[in-house]
Design a protein around this nucleic acid. Structure first.
Lengths: 256, 256
DNA sequence: CGTAAGATTGACAAGCGTCAAATACAGTGG
DNA sequence: CCACTGTATTTGACGCTTGTCAATCTTACG
């Protein structure tokens, strides 16, 4: 089996691009239109290109359409920590809206396509489509929960358990935009990347992976992961499953 | 000097209650009114009481008016990780809006007063005051940045540096609502709490603290911390200073 | 076929957790 | 005011987890 380009081959770009929104509520035709006009210009970048640089002046707001990216924070001594990986449908640059300088560096892990969202369009969204604005708000809360889970994982568990938790989280994310990927999914990160995500050395990550393989919980050849025993991995990770709260009653009505 | 009740003695409750909003933009009289009607009922809780329980059905939305709280995530094996501490003005329960079940347990670290925010009022806020909704959105992005910084700290630095980074972050937060606390501030957490926040054992936290004291970077008697050498602590923590982006141009105009 | 990057393994050292004991401290009742 | 008691903090000893360094092996790609 050849290594394919990662992430949702098959599914239309548009569908996964709005998947974070539709995961929370059904969209009216107007909502859909407003959402699509939000991200006007389309740009493509090569693997390794930067979407934004930590510390630079406001780096812009994007919707990831195709490919994977990762965001990182760099310390004064040069060491870096990968914060999270972004999949198609993720918004890029939201946290930096709160700051004068860009909060994180974002780099393309694969060739990517992004939609450019002008800041003014965000303001109009809040004024003209409160329902979409509320959904964007919910997406941000979901991001907070994912960060909280990762923080708990880093703070309280061993390298092996962190690895299980991380791969489960990413797997669940992949499943959402590509429901056919129940067992196996394309995975463009190197072990070095995963090590940086988990706050472990690359060497030790290899050791942790060895344990998961030996326990027959998963296989990981370069660029592809097969989750053999999801219940086993879940038990190992020890973290609660999160279910999204769909069509919350407090959400503003769909625009017409 | 006696140990006083922690947090903003002196400053009016109201001012610190809305400090997270005013940190991002000036509020009109109408904005202020809308914000105050958001949190209707007022409740007080004792130290140790729970505001919400992880896993329970939707636990509600609150504005912390007085006192400190902490949120935590519990693992299947019973170990817990403290995620963050909340100070007056912080919103409680936002992340759980995205989920069917409450994402985190929130417990009072001191006697507290909270304002209850009905979910329906949140929906109305998005419909009737897009500017306040956008500010709430920005506050959530700031929370994400703070979580990202903590995640980086846990993943990439030693116990000593984590401690420096955490205390700097909290100190900066305290300073914002009480600008008189430049040098010293009341600090109601036990070393055990801080250890759980930093993903370290209480014993090792004591050792890390010893190093900071020996380096004359700070003092910490129970319930009170004095930051002796903020530049030194900052250099040790190695994390960038974050400046808020105030009065962003894209924000909707103030309501009249 | 050759080269470079990624992954694996072993040996050793450092950081941190655990256990246990000792000390300091706050609050209680006398 | 003082003794008493439980909790928080500190310290030491020891072992496990993880980081670092270096060598080897694998894989991708020119």
């Amino acid at each position: 089996m050849q290594a394919m380009r990662p992430s949702n081959q098959g599914a239309p770009v548009l569908e996964s691009a709005i998947s974070r929104f539709t995961a929370f509520a059904d969209l009216s035709a107007k909502d859909l239109g407003d959402l699509l006009t939000l991200a006007g210009g389309r740009r493509t970048l090569q693997k390794g290109d930067h979407v934004s640089h930590e510390g630079h002046a406001s780096a812009g707001l994007y919707l990831l359409l195709e490919g994977w990216t990762a965001s990182s924070i760099t310390f004064a001594d040069g060491s870096r920590q990968l914060i999270k990986v972004h999949l198609p449908g993720d918004m890029l640059g939201l946290p930096s809206l709160a700051l004068r300088h860009c909060a994180e560096s974002i780099v393309a892990l694969t060739p990517i396509a992004i939609g450019v969202i002008p800041e003014a369009a965000l303001g109009r969204l809040f004024e003209l489509n409160p329902r979409l604005a509320a959904l964007l708000f919910l997406i941000s809360q979901e991001e907070r929960v994912m960060l909280m889970d990762r923080l708990a994982s880093l703070g309280a568990t061993s390298a092996v358990r962190r690895l299980a938790a991380l791969l489960l989280q990413i797997h669940a994310r992949v499943l959402r935009s590509d429901p056919t990927a129940t067992g196996a999914f394309d995975f463009p990160l190197s072990q070095r990347d995963v090590a940086d995500l988990n706050g472990v050395s690359a060497v030790h990550l290899s050791r942790a992976l060895r344990q998961l393989r030996a326990a027959k919980l998963l296989t990981w050849t370069r660029y592809r992961i097969t989750m053999i025993d999801v219940p086993g991995l879940t038990a190992l990770a020890g973290i609660a499953q999160r279910e999204l709260n769909q069509n919350a009653r407090w959400l503003p009505m769909p625009g017409k």
